[in-house]
């Protein structure tokens, strides 16, 4: 379960109030929206609380001109899923890397860069992971056509 301490620490970083959904309906315990430059401090908080990183993914909100990056965290000893999300503008999708805190994020960030063209500043090597080495397209953008 999510401790009150963690909730307070994340509340300081959140842009608006954290959502505590019903697990049965949504499948996660806590949903926090943060500013793009707060994803690394948030990852630090999660790391200190002993969480592991399940995945990083993007969502392209074409109509709103935004890109969303979603971080899924989970705990292996006292299970509880925390979702941390940040929105960046679609024109300049940039936010800092968390790979210094979670080395597992290296691949997830590369994959998100492949699919959405989101740039993780500070990432050591953002070359394509799943797409061919010379790929210059981002197939999961909603305006992508081959």
């Amino acid at each position: 379960m999510i401790s009150q301490e963690l909730k307070n620490a994340l509340a300081k970083l959140a842009v608006n109030e954290a959502v505590v959904p019903d697990f049965k309906d949504k499948g996660f315990h806590l949903d926090v929206a943060v500013a793009p430059d707060a994803v690394a401090p948030a990852a630090e908080v999660m790391n200190l609380a002993g969480f592991f990183l399940e995945a990083i993914t993007g969502v392209d909100w074409l109509a709103e001109g935004q890109m969303e990056v979603v971080y899924d965290y989970n705990h292996s000893i006292s299970p509880g899923r925390v979702v941390i999300r940040a929105r960046v503008s679609r024109a300049t999708p940039e936010l800092p890397t968390i790979s210094a805190i979670y080395p597992g994020a290296l691949w997830h960030e590369r994959e998100t860069h492949d699919f959405f063209g989101i740039v993780f500043t500070g990432h050591p090597d953002l070359k394509p992971l799943l797409l061919p080495e010379d790929a210059d397209f981002h197939p999961l953008r909603k305006d992508y056509t081959s």
Binding site: G50, F52, L53, E54, A55, S76, Y102, P103, G104
Partner: peptide, 8 residues
């Protein structure tokens, strides 16, 4: 190491 990389 499992925790850092998300291994399950």
């Amino acid at each position: 190491m499992c925790r850092k990389y998300g291994a399950t």
